[in-house]
Amino acid sequence: MAYFLQQLVNGVALGAIYGLIAIGYTMVYGIIGMINFAHGEIFMIGAFLSLIALLLIAALGISNVPLALALTLLFAMAFAALYGWTVERLAYRPLRGSQRLAPLISAIGMSIVLQNTVQLLQGARVKPLQPVITGGLVLMEGDGFVVRLSYLQIIIMLLTLALMIGFTWLIHNTTLGRAQRATEQDMTMAALVGIDVDRTISATFVMGAALAAVAGLMVTLYYGVVDFYIGFHAGVKAFTAAVLGGIGSLPGAMLGGLLIGLIEAFWSGYFTIEYKDVAAFAILILVLIFRPTGLLGRPEIEKV
């Protein structure tokens, strides 16, 4: 029981991170119907930006941990958002209106470019970080096993929850959110009622990238290591989460992220850790066989 609870805690924390990245995939897919394969790299860049910011802040002698984290978060989100905007402007906007495959290939290209740039600039070696937030709560002690919920896990869960609520509110209640939903449903018609579609799409990329940067900071703090290749792995997982939850659906992305996180945690806890990816993808395949639109996805309506 204690062991089960511990895996649950670990799975939720991991799932929250996947969920945050998955939102970026799902929003972009929703609005322009393409898979932004460079999104995983934006997450990786967010992790590096966090690392740089944390080291800079330490060098400046700021020792207040909440302040340091808040500054890091702002720094990482702002610069990652800039990356997100630039990627869209350079690699996707010129291809809008071309056939579906072209931006996909452009996205893969962008992903390779970003990965190699970071590899060149930061080196290929794994970058370590001293733990910033230590300690935690003991939830339960039993069978000689201690269930711990670290402060960092609490921060990850609360921050994710807050961001999820905030973004859902934004999409449903603000002018920008309405424009995004309108663009998602009918891009041409959105332009005809006076929405600047290009700017709305840019805003979507900026929002997705900022969320990925938050996930980047969390991973940097959680695992304490960063390298130029983490974007690929996390990207594939988050993409899987988005598809599992129903691509295009915001709550679906979060649900998918949590499920993938839990599956991974439980599989590594009870079976062999090497096969945790197999378990996650197997569940994906099973879900897609019985619910091709994902768990919370709406069936695609053919547009005439």
């Binding site: 603000t174 920008l176 959110g177 009918d186 009622v193």
Partner: peptide, 28 residues
């Protein structure tokens, strides 16, 4: 007909006033 099918009737009419609202809200 090309309405935004998943928005309510009222939302369809409000989204049509996007430009005015976007300015008033200083880009949200």
């Amino acid at each position: 007909i090309r309405l935004f099918p998943n928005m309510t009737a009222l939302e369809n009419l409000i989204v049509a006033q996007h430009d005015t609202l976007m300015r008033a809200s200083l880009w949200s």
